[in-house]
């Protein structure tokens, strides 16, 4: 009886000689492949057989819902659910203030509700500058308060507008202006007296809403709207520049001011003001990095992005 080693050598020789003939190679390879496929099929059969015999398949299958209910619909003028293209107005509840409102206005609402966004800043500051009872509806959430100025500053430096600048709802800015102009003059006069004692933030906010040009005669700020015909845009700009200079502020605060001014432009105020302010705002932002490079997101990826920018030409 030949030993295993001898058998091995004999086998090797046998196979080698057989396979030296190319015709044999083809046939042999096919045969091997077919065997392999059959054994893979066998494996799957055993798996399914086992699952079936052990009751697993039954449990997995359960009772199926009617499949046709969820079939995709393909047709003109409708989506895949067979629903018409135009959507019905939807409503939702604000997680912050629990009010019900139209879904399409949720984002701007939330923005004010959380005390973010430029409008909210204005409104919040209006609370400071006058005690009008109209402001009841809006409240900044607590955890955002401390971060208010920091967050918005950062945001303003880095944010570039990508979307549509929608005209603000009439109920936000305008009415406020009107109130200021007509209703509470006396209060404002008080504010005037107290102008010097206001914080810079408050002054800035005030100047976002009113003309602000100091009347030579009365030495008081003009409280008419930003479109007031008594004074020119030049004058208004000068007042703001003076405020900034007195602060000793750097370029960084300028965008705050300018951006907010653009905001009020959207309420229908002076065209030329916007253009000139808009241009300088653009100038300002040309030196900032893209929002995608914002350092406040994952540090690793932003680091990578900066690196990426550098390596590209």
């Amino acid at each position: 009886m030949a030993s295993v080693e001898e058998k091995q050598i004999e086998l090797d020789r046998e196979v080698r000689s057989y396979l030296s003939n190319p015709n044999n190679v083809e046939a042999a390879a096919e045969a091997v492949l077919n065997d392999l496929v059959d054994s893979v099929v066998l494996g799957i059969v055993f798996e399914v057989h086992r699952a079936a015999k052990c009751g697993i398949v039954d449990h997995e299958d359960g009772i199926t819902d009617e499949v046709s209910k969820f079939e995709i619909v393909e047709g003109a003028d409708m989506d895949i659910f067979g629903q018409p293209l135009k959507k019905r107005p939807q409503r939702c509840i604000c997680p912050s203030c629990k009010r019900s409102l139209a879904a399409l206005r949720f984002a701007p609402h939330l923005s004010k509700c959380m005390g973010l966004g430029r409008n909210s800043l204005r409104l919040a500051s209006r609370q400071i500058t006058n005690s009008s009872k109209e402001m009841v509806g809006y409240s900044a959430t607590d955890d955002n308060d401390s971060e208010l100025s920091l967050g918005s500053d950062r945001r303003r430096k880095k944010r570039v507008s990508f979307g549509t600048r929608r005209p603000k709802n009439s109920k936000t800015g305008r009415n406020g202006d009107v109130t200021l102009e007509t209703g509470t003059c006396s209060e404002l006069n008080n504010s005037n007296m107290n102008y010097d004692s206001m914080s810079n933030e408050e002054k800035k906010n005030l100047l976002m809403q009113i003309c602000g040009v100091i009347s030579v005669s009365t030495r008081k700020l003009c409280t008419r709207s930003m479109r007031c015909s008594q004074h020119s845009d030049e004058q208004r700009r000068a007042v703001r520049a003076a405020l900034l200079n007195s602060q000793g502020s750097d370029m960084n605060s300028t965008p705050d001011m300018l951006q907010v001014d653009i905001d009020s432009y959207e309420d229908g105020d002076g065209q030329s003001m916007c253009e000139s302010l808009g241009q300088s705002w653009e100038q300002e932002h040309s030196n900032t990095s893209s929002p995608a490079d914002s350092a406040s997101t994952s540090s690793s990826s932003s680091k990578k992005r900066e690196k990426n920018t550098k390596t590209q030409e």
Binding site: L11, E14, Y18, N24, A31, V32, L33, L36, V37, V40
Partner: peptide, 24 residues
């Protein structure tokens, strides 16, 4: 006859298992 021999040598070298795994 050779089918058996070829099969045997594939088993010996372990290639049969490797081919099966690749195919799978």
């Amino acid at each position: 006859l050779y089918k058996t021999s070829i099969e045997q040598s594939l088993i010996l070298s372990g290639e049969k298992d490797r081919f099966k795994e690749l195919l799978r």
